[in-house]
């Protein structure tokens, strides 16, 4: 029995979601292999083979996989599926794109966004924005699974002594082309793996005011997130969105500022360890999930928070 994890990477570095996915794979049981499909991605394969618990890294080094186009990735996964009881990828925009395509090509179901491995064929996944949890069982020969990364610990990046083996590329249908990307650049920690996240909502009133959030985030070494309303209004880029249809986060500390707490937002952050809400409306639903609620005007509270954090040496 073996399980295959699809590595998320940019051909240079192995990305964190892969590490959580390895942990989920190990819970299913059997040897854990990691597929590194990319272009000039040898360093990533070496990194994957060194991850604790990984028995083998498969490398497919071919320009067709440089940008992980789903049309090319899916046939590759299907060509390997026969050797595996399960294939796992993170449930982020990387894995969500090609995994269902691969599953359908193989005529298998996909089990989306699992947050718990009950047994090798039974998994728990959230539905209805996390307002219900479904326990589902699959008897497909290969289970195609995407993993809610915040629900599984990060595997150690060292300690493993897996081998690196070459695997063959599959046929490339040549029906899609990567044109370019606009990557939001900032020096902050990755939103989905940050220890602290500070998010702003419509209450921020404008993108210009987000410096207030950033100043607090700087003091906390935090990532910055946002509600859909703040993204739709153009205050911040789309990749800041936390929620049912945005990013799922579960940091040690989540600070929601000027966010009302719609169920779609809560779906993305309610598994955070400690939740703080700052909102001027004491009836705002966000207070129902907050461990510490402060009813205040954010334009007073944020500068004050920055000062208080300074005092305790942050």
């Amino acid at each position: 029995m073996a399980v295959l994890v699809i590595a998320e990477h940019d051909n240079v570095e192995l990305k964190d979601p892969t590490l959580n996915t390895v942990t989920a794979a190990a819970e299913i049981g059997g040897d854990v292999h990691v597929l590194v499909a990319g272009s000039n991605c040898r360093a990533v394969a070496d990194a994957a083979a060194a991850v604790a618990g990984v028995a083998k890294a498969l490398i497919v080094d071919d320009p067709a996989y440089e940008h992980h186009l789903a049309e090319n990735m899916a046939p590759l996964l299907v060509s390997l599926a026969g050797d595996y009881d399960a294939i796992l990828a993170p449930a982020d925009t990387f894995g969500k794109d090609f995994m269902p395509r691969a599953a359908a090509l193989a005529d298998m179901a996909q089990i989306s966004d699992i947050q718990e491995v009950v047994s090798a064929d039974t998994f728990v996944r959230p539905i209805y924005a996390g307002n219900a949890l479904a326990t589902v069982q699959s008897d497909d020969d290969t289970k195609f699974i995407t993993v809610r990364t915040t629900a599984f610990a990060t595997a150690e990046t060292s300690g493993g002594s897996g081998s690196v083996e070459e695997a063959s590329a599959a046929e490339n249908p040549g029906i899609s082309t990567f044109i370019g990307s606009e990557v939001s650049k900032n020096e902050r920690p990755e939103l989905t793996s940050a220890r602290v996240v500070v998010s702003g909502g419509r209450g921020m009133q404008s993108g210009d005011n987000f410096y207030l959030i950033e100043n607090v985030a700087d003091k906390l070494g935090a990532a910055v997130g946002a509600s859909r309303a703040a993204v739709d209004a153009g205050f911040v880029p789309n990749d800041y969105q936390v929620g049912q249809t945005g990013k799922i986060v579960a940091p040690e500390l989540y600070v929601a500022v000027g966010i009302s707490g719609a169920i779609q937002h809560l779906a993305g952050m309610k598994d955070s360890k400690v939740i703080v809400a700052i909102n001027k409306d004491e009836e705002a639903p966000i207070f129902q999930v907050a461990d510490f609620g402060l009813v205040a005007d954010l334009f007073d509270a944020l500068p004050e928070l920055e000062k208080e954090l300074q005092k305790i040496g942050n």
């Binding site: 186009l69 899609s176 082309t177 990567f178 044109i179 370019g180 990307s181 990557v183 789309n238 990749d239």
Partner: peptide
């Protein structure tokens, strides 16, 4: 996409 925007 998670990193920003991508064009295909």
């Amino acid at each position: 996409v998670d990193g920003g925007l991508e064009t295909v």
